[in-house]
Amino acid sequence: MSVRSSYEAGVPCWVDLSSPDVQASVTFYGEIFGWRAEMADDPAAGGYGQFVHNGKKVAGVGPIMGEGMPPVWNVYVATDDAAATADRVKNAGGSVVVEPMRIFDEGTMAVFQGGDGSFFSVWQAGNHRGAELVNEPGSFCWNELVTRDPQAAARFYTTVFGWTPKPTEMDGMTYTEWLADDKSIAGMIEMSPNYPEGTPSHWATYFAVADLDATMARAQSLGATVLIDSMDSPPGRFGMILDPQGAALSLIQLTETA
């Protein structure tokens, strides 16, 4: 389903960008995805805004909040109880980075670090239910854990969200799908030696595009750096870029929309 009004607990439901230059990011993503930014007027929102595509909320954007934090696309997993999730994180060997906090009447968020070192967020919906459009060009379509310790990650995320790992051997490597209620909701792959030394385990976001080559070329013309050139995968051709502000994201031209 592409148009969404709710998410089951344990399913990635939202992504947002932490940027060192929000206006520059708004301009860049407006150019490559056709997004329009709706920025919150309330100073208490901390400069946060939402990207809208075809009248639907698809992602968020805001300034980097912590000193020394890198530009990054953040992944949020839906939860019915952020506080209970925080307890499971602690019991599973993870840590709470931001305690559950209510965001106006929109919902409750929290930020955690997993047992493999990866950071992720959860969202307990209020008025804001999550992305209203997914799996179509101009929206996110997949989230993937790139980890240095797949075994630790499997133990941690299974305990916290009840996910079931489904590993598959592909071209000499193991790719793991995370299943929730027998539905594939995210992926996991062990970090390859091609990543720069010291790159931590992290969640990566894929955005669907109608024309991968054209989008990659447009992104480059606007100052993005290509990290992975266009290559084939079972869901479709994809590439990875570093946006002009330094945040990594993947672009994919899906063979079939979900």
Rank of each mutant, 00 (worst) to 15 (best):
R237V: 12
G239R: 12
T176R: 00
G34A: 10
N54G: 11
V61A: 07
G223W: 02
E106G: 07
N194P: 00
P234W: 02
S5Q: 14
Q23M: 13
A208M: 11
Y195K: 06
V111T: 08
G10W: 00
G162D: 12
R88G: 01
D182Y: 00
D42T: 07
G172R: 02
G187E: 10
P193S: 12
Y76G: 02
S221A: 15
V98W: 06
E190C: 06
P200E: 09
G239D: 02
T174M: 09
W35S: 11
S192E: 10
M216P: 01
D16W: 06
V226K: 11
L17D: 03
V61T: 13
D21V: 05
P71M: 09
R36V: 08
P193R: 07
D116Y: 01
T108G: 08
D171R: 10
L251I: 12
T79E: 00
K57F: 07
Q245L: 10
Q151M: 07
G30Y: 06
A84N: 11
G117V: 11
D171H: 12
M170T: 03
D229F: 05
R88Y: 01
E38W: 05
A154G: 06
E144C: 01
Y206V: 06
T215W: 04
L227K: 12
V77W: 00
L212P: 08
G55C: 04
S121R: 01
T174R: 04
S18A: 12
A24N: 13
I189G: 12
A152R: 13
T168Q: 14
A125M: 04
S25L: 09
E67Y: 08
Y175M: 10
A110G: 15
E8L: 12
A153Y: 00
A125I: 03
Q151R: 12
A92V: 10
A84M: 04
A152W: 06
G94C: 11
W178H: 02
V61N: 07
V134Q: 14
Q220C: 14
T257N: 14
Y48W: 03
F156E: 05
Y206P: 04
T225E: 10
G138I: 11
E67T: 14
S5I: 04
L179N: 00
Y195S: 12
A210R: 11
Q50N: 08
G162A: 09
A24F: 05
C141G: 05
Q113A: 15
L249K: 13
Q220H: 12
V26K: 08
S250L: 15
S233Y: 06
W163A: 05
A24R: 15
V160C: 10
S2A: 15
M173G: 05
Q220N: 11
G138Y: 06
M39Q: 10
W123F: 00
F112D: 08
M188P: 05
A204G: 07
S118R: 02
A219K: 00
G49Y: 04
A247L: 07
G49P: 02
S250G: 12
G246T: 09
D16K: 07
Q245S: 13
V15E: 05
P234F: 02
E256G: 01
